[in-house]
Amino acid sequence: MIPSSGRQERRINLSREEQWVLHHVMLDRMELEAQSPADTDPPSIAVYRVFEKLEAGTHQFSQSECQCLQDELRQYAEVVNTPKRDQPIADRLLDKFQQPESVSSTVKSLP
């Protein structure tokens, strides 16, 4: 498990289908990196942190993790072969992660 750095995190309420799409998006990103040539830049550490949190059932994300999720969801929604059933879910997730922090609860991580 990646230790917390004591930073502020946002708790995001996610439905089961939203959790599945997020998990799929992050896993797909890591698998793409594994298949890329050696000279390709790996994904940011936030990709791995988010995936680990999703695996653990945690829905609290730092600002950089929220930005990572937005970037990955945006790319996923734009890909031609994204399943049609996932596109509205990805759009809904983007809306959730773009909401001001005051709309979702903010918690301080324990050191």
Score class of each variant (00 low, 15 high):
Ala38Cys: 06
Val47Lys: 01
Asp41Ser: 03
Asn13Ser: 10
Leu27Phe: 11
Arg92Gly: 15
Arg10Ser: 09
Ser109Ala: 05
Arg11Lys: 05
Cys66Asn: 04
Gln67Met: 04
Ser105Pro: 08
Val103Gln: 14
Ser36Lys: 03
Pro42Ser: 04
Met1Gln: 02
Pro42Val: 06
Met30Arg: 14
Met30Asn: 08
Thr82His: 03
Pro42Trp: 03
Pro42Met: 04
Arg29Phe: 04
Ala34Met: 05
Cys68Arg: 01
Ser62Gly: 06
Arg74Asn: 10
Glu31Arg: 11
Trp20Leu: 13
Pro3Ser: 10
Leu27Ser: 06
Trp20Met: 12
Leu94Lys: 05
Leu14Asp: 05
Gln8Val: 04
Gln19His: 15
Phe51Asn: 09
Glu101His: 14
Lys96His: 07
Pro83Phe: 12
Phe51Gln: 12
Arg10Tyr: 06
Asp28Leu: 14
Ser105Trp: 10
Met30Glu: 10
Ser44Tyr: 02
Met30Gln: 15
Arg74Met: 11
Ala77Glu: 09
Asp41Phe: 11
Glu72Arg: 03
Lys108Glu: 13
Tyr76His: 01
His24Lys: 14
Glu101Pro: 08
Thr58Val: 13
Arg10Ala: 11
Glu17Trp: 12
Ala56Cys: 11
His24Phe: 10
Tyr48Leu: 08
Gln63Arg: 14
Asp39Met: 11
Ser15Met: 00
Ala38Trp: 14
His23Arg: 11
Lys96Thr: 05
Asp91Arg: 02
Gly6Leu: 00
Gly57Met: 07
Ala77Arg: 08
Pro43Val: 02
Asp95Trp: 10
Thr106Tyr: 05
Ala34Asn: 13
His59Met: 04
Gln98Met: 12
His23Ile: 01
Lys53Gly: 07
Ala90Tyr: 00
Arg16Phe: 08
Arg11Met: 06
Ser109Cys: 05
Asp39Phe: 13
Leu93Gly: 00
Ser62Tyr: 09
Ala90Thr: 01
Ile12Phe: 09
Val79Met: 14
Gln70His: 00
Asp41Glu: 13
Ile89Lys: 01
Glu31Thr: 06
Glu33Asn: 13
Ile12Asp: 00
Asp41Ala: 15
Tyr76Arg: 03
Ala56Ile: 03
Ile2Met: 11
Arg7Leu: 13
Ile89Asn: 05
Arg11Leu: 12
Asp91Asn: 07
Gln70Ala: 01
Pro43Ser: 14
Tyr76Gln: 05
Ser36Thr: 05
Thr82Val: 05
Lys108Ser: 03
His59Asn: 15
Pro43Glu: 10
Pro37Gln: 11
Gln63Ser: 14
Ile45His: 12
Ala34Cys: 08
Thr106Glu: 12
Gly6Met: 05
Asp95Asn: 03
Arg7Gln: 13
